[in-house]
């Protein structure tokens, strides 16, 4: 029944299903983008701010 409904659907017409699919794709894209930024931030913090040798070097300067 669901297949029949889909086959009758005009491809140019925006259905509620497309809206939901779009929101899912955009949401997933944004979530993945945020994850990349978070990992970048985590790496920067771990490598620079929390590295004792860098902290000691900065203290000397």
């Amino acid at each position: 029944m669901a297949l029949e409904a889909r086959s009758k659907m005009a491809i140019t017409k925006l259905h509620d299903m497309h809206t939901r699919r779009r929101s899912r794709n955009v949401g997933l894209g944004l979530a993945l983008g945020a994850f990349v930024l978070l990992l970048l931030g985590l790496t920067v913090v771990k490598v620079t701010v929390l590295d004792p040798s860098i902290a000691a070097q900065e203290a000397q300067n």
């Binding site: 409904a5 889909r6 509620d16 299903m17 939901r20 699919r21 929101s23 899912r24 955009v26 997933l28």
Partner: peptide, 12 residues
């Protein structure tokens, strides 16, 4: 759901 297409909000 007939169309079974969850939006982002449904997962949230």
């Amino acid at each position: 759901d007939d169309n079974h297409e969850a939006g982002f909000g449904d997962y949230f």
